[in-house]
Every structure is written in structure tokens, then in C-alpha cells.
Write a protein that binds this DNA or RNA. Structure first.
Lengths: 276, 276
DNA sequence: TTAATATGTTTGGTATAGCCAAACACCATT
DNA sequence: AATGGTGTTTGGCTATACCAAACATATTAA
């Protein structure tokens, strides 16, 4: 593994990126030099030089000059972000299929990949006239209380799933969140049996998600897709009906990537789990 | 203006960002340490440290370990890029440019977006000592008798433009208002050809406006800007001179949002309209 | 097998350049 | 005027970013 030693890092580059994250956290309002310098524990002069550097390359933009100059994220990040998404082949393949899925079940659908233990949304198709669920691209979903997250966890060996949960923890996002490891591992076993994962108000009250994994050539889970909607709406359509619609579309994506369908990919894992 | 002197920059941060751009240029395949180090004219060791730093914060991701380790853009950029888009408010970008425009032509200028068929004013810069035209923020302009409205209509497919006109109607605001659909559609075709829209006393007698569209990354019209003044004053300066000044400033705003200039955005639409 | 030549990783030593403190210019307040 | 905020600019100290070179590892060729 690559060493985590600070010796092999470039300090001022790291500080610059931290500053960028800091500015991102300020959102639309942006941040001022003095505040940013204080928060990052750097002298105004040093922070100023960094801001100028980020500015020159378009990573940040400045609004207002003189006394109340404010810095916010710039256009270069838009370009790089678009490109980063484009580099993930999955999103290109998945989004057209998600359009069909959304058309079929009338629910907002998403595709996510596992990154550093979190589920990162890389594609999205909104249901027409649906309530806008917060599903921004790049959003990091907690793995233990989202359908995509649980589908991805179910694909991993229990060891790895546990390791991820230890890092992310199991914060209580709603009264229905599964907050114990044993409860969640039990749910993952159910997920394997069913073939699709259910998020039953575990992140947001009243909101339900149903998700399934997509697999690539190697047979490993390349990501997961899910549909999101008000719980009552999904119950009306029948959870299992929706679940199998999700699986059917996930399998189409897997096929396009040369991977096996869910039923096949999880066959041996299921065999290992069921007797236990 | 902020100095462009290298003295006020952080060299290694700049190099790191350049490295990021370099990796972006490699696209899906990504880049290898040796190649990247050579291209950026840095020792392998230095480049290695930078890559580790970018990696630790998720700005890049690595695929394959050991001999053929490859680096490509990471998930953090997806998140930051999406956020950057959300943070860009048209009025923020437009107003500073409008200041320049007002200074250049000595006329009050405005920026508006299309909302539910009406042009909504979201930013304004008054000309010094000019007659105060009623240009309050949030004001809903009728699309058929304002420069911003007609510029926006001209950007839409004829179908949609007609649909909007059916909803808003074509009330006669002055003796010069175009009150028939055919007259207006004809005027929109002229607008496409010119690149800028003219409101010739169509809303208020004696008052003339000249407007042009601004475009975002997707190539769609994000809004429009216009200048307003007494008709005689604009004729004195030359309508076409003013029109091209408006276009020039609109293009600056479009560029800041990653969009194309008017000439480019309307090229194919013009081609479709002209023979008709 | 052995050698050769790629790759990525690790190591000191040195000069650079990044950082701080303080002064400066500017604009709001009071 | 005077005060207390901004952002900008300056010198000087020293931390640190960089290079060269050695090391480890893997693929190729003889």
C-alpha cells in the first residue's frame, strides 16, 4: 500500500486543496480572505497567495473587489467534474437504462459507485413531476441507510462490509435507521436472498428506496442503481414488483458491461449465507 | 487589479493543479507516474509526492498497483463540480459586466431570466444621471414587448415560443406593440439574423431597448441582458453600434458560465430559419 | 537462467520558495 | 480625526519542495 507518511506529500498543495474544500463548504456566499486564513490557520499573506493561484487557474472565482472580496468555486471545477463523471463508464451506460426504469415505474432513479466506503451518486434521472429528492451528483450516501449502499455492501465479503461500517459508523438518520451491526448484517443477508435492497425510511421518514447491484466483466459489483419515492407510492405499486423491475434494469446494465445478472452473480454468495 | 506577479503565487500548488489538468487531458485511460513527471518537467520523486497528495484527498483515483499504476480524475471533483454549478448565479456574474456595458454606452442595463413564460429581471445597473426607468428587480416583463423577452423567445423552438405567447397573450402596451403572432414571429426571425433583439417603443412610447441572450454550458439560453434608453439617444449612438456592444458583453457573461457566444449558439437555428 | 530495461518507491542533502510578522493602503464606521 | 475593519505588499528566516541517485519490483530479451 502507498505509505501514509507525510514525507511523501506536498504540504502546500495539500493546504491549497484544503482551502478549496473550505471554500466549497461556504457555498454560494463564498468566503473572505480573513475568515479563510483564520479557519485554515495560515497567515493572511500565505492564504492570499494560495487564493491567487487557485484564481489564476479558474478553480475559484472572485466576486466584488476591494473591501468585501469573496471567493467561491470556479468554472474549472465544473469542467473537471464533468470529465471525472465521463471517465466513469458506468454512468454513460446506466443513464439511458435509468430513463427506461423511471418511465416504467414513475420514480426518480440513480446510479452510484462505491468509493472509499461511501456510495457516490454518478448519474440520476428525475421522475417527471416528482418531488425533488436531494440527489445531486457527487453526493456521498452513507452505506448503511441507502438502497444503493446496502446493495453494494451485500456484494462484498462480510469482512469488508464490516470494515467499511466501522469507518463510516451507523449514525441514526431517522427513527427507522438500522444502528447496530448485527441488525444490518442480517438485513444484508435478506438482501442477498431477495436480490434487491430496501431502504425503508432508514434515511428520511416517508421516503423509500429500492436498489440492486450492477456487475462488470470480472463479476464484481461495479455499482448499484436504485429508485426513490414516497413510501406509500411504492407500496401501492407493490414493493416486490418494483424490486424486480429494478433488478431487470440492473441486469440490462450489467449485460452491457459484459457482467452477469444479479441472480447469477449472487448465487454462490447466497449459498454461503443461507445455512447460517 | 490583483497583480499577476509570480511573487504572489504558491508555486507547488500551481504545479499540482497543472498536474491535475494534465491527468484530465489523459481522459479515461489516465496517466502513469513516469509520463506525467516527464510532461510536467518534474522529477519522479516530486511528481510522486504530488500524486499522493491529490490521491489522499480524492482529487484523483488510482487504478492498478505496482508497475502499471494509473491515475485518473477522482470523485471529489465530481462533488465540487456539481457544487460549483449550483453556486453560479447568473446575476452575480452578469452585474459586473453590466457595469462595464453601462459605462460603455451610457445606458441603463438589465439582466433577466425566463420564468414561466415571463422575463424576470434579476439584476440591474442604472446609468448615471439617467431618467429612472422602472426596472425593479423581480419585475415580470411581458415577453412580446421587451428586448430581453424577445431575445429569450428567439432562442426557443418556434413551438415553445408560440405556446408561451398563447399563455401570456399579446396585450397592446403602446401604439407600436406587435399584437399579432405572425408579426412577432417575423420579428424573432429578424432577431436571430441580427443576433440582438430590438424593442422599438413597443412597451413605452419614446423608450427603446436592445437585448441579447446569454448561454450556459448546455448551450441553452440562461437569460438575456438589455440596455434601455430614450429612443433618440440610442439612434444618436447608432442602433447597430449599441447592438454589437450588447452582444459583446453578453458573450463575456456566457464565457464566464462556460457557454458559447451568440454567434455560435444561434448558428444552426439561423440556418433553419433563413430559407423560410 | 541471467541480463537489461522498464516501472514505482524510498533516501539524504541543498537551495529554493513558502510562510510569518509587520507595515501599508483603503474603506467603513464612530 | 480616529478607530477598526478589510485586502495588499514587503523583507527575511527557515521549513520544505525538489533533485539525483539508490532501491525494489516486474516485464522483456538473450
Amino acid at each position: 500500500m502507498a505509505t501514509t507518511d507525510d514525507r511523501y506529500r506536498v504540504q502546500s498543495l495539500g493546504r491549497g486543496l484544503e482551502l478549496l474544500d473550505l471554500i466549497a463548504r461556504r457555498g454560494r456566499e463564498g468566503g473572505r480572505l480573513s475568515d479563510l486564513a483564520r479557519e485554515i490557520s495560515l497567515s493572511k499573506a500565505a492564504c492570499y497567495a494560495m487564493l491567487q493561484t487557485l484564481l489564476a487557474r479558474g478553480y475559484i472565482a472572485d466576486r466584488g473587489k476591494g473591501i468585501e472580496r469573496r471567493y467561491r468555486l470556479g468554472m474549472t471545477l465544473v469542467r473537471l467534474g464533468e470529465q471525472a463523471i465521463g471517465n466513469i463508464a458506468l454512468s454513460d451506460i446506466a443513464v439511458p437504462v435509468l430513463r427506461d426504469l423511471t418511465a416504467a415505474v414513475g420514480l426518480t432513479s440513480r446510479v452510484a459507485v462505491l468509493d472509499d466506503g461511501y456510495a457516490v451518486v454518478v448519474g440520476r434521472v428525475d421522475a417527471p413531476g416528482a418531488i425533488r429528492f436531494d440527489a445531486a451528483l457527487g453526493r456521498r450516501e452513507l452505506p448503511h441507510c441507502s438502497a444503493v449502499g446496502k446493495a453494494l455492501l451485500a456484494s462484498l465479503p462480510s469482512e469488508q462490509a464490516r470494515a467499511i461500517l466501522h469507518r463510516t459508523g451507523l449514525p441514526e438518520r431517522s427513527p427507522h435507521t438500522l444502528t447496530t451491526e448485527s441488525a444490518l448484517m442480517h438485513d444484508l443477508a435478506d438482501t442477498l436472498r431477495r436480490g434487491y435492497a430496501i431502504d425503508d425510511e432508514e434515511d428520511t421518514e416517508g421516503v423509500m428506496c429500492v436498489g440492486a447491484c450492477v456487475f462488470d466483466r470480472s463479476g464484481a459489483a461495479a455499482g448499484a442503481i436504485s429508485v426513490t419515492g414516497l413510501k406509500q407510492r411504492i407500496l401501492d405499486r407493490g414493493t416486490d414488483i418494483v424490486g424486480h423491475a429494478v433488478i431487470r434494469h440492473a441486469d440490462r446494465i450489467s449485460a452491457a458491461m459484459g457482467g452477469p445478472p444479479v441472480a447469477e452473480a449472487w448465487r454462490e454468495r447466497r449459498a454461503g449465507q443461507q445455512p447460517a
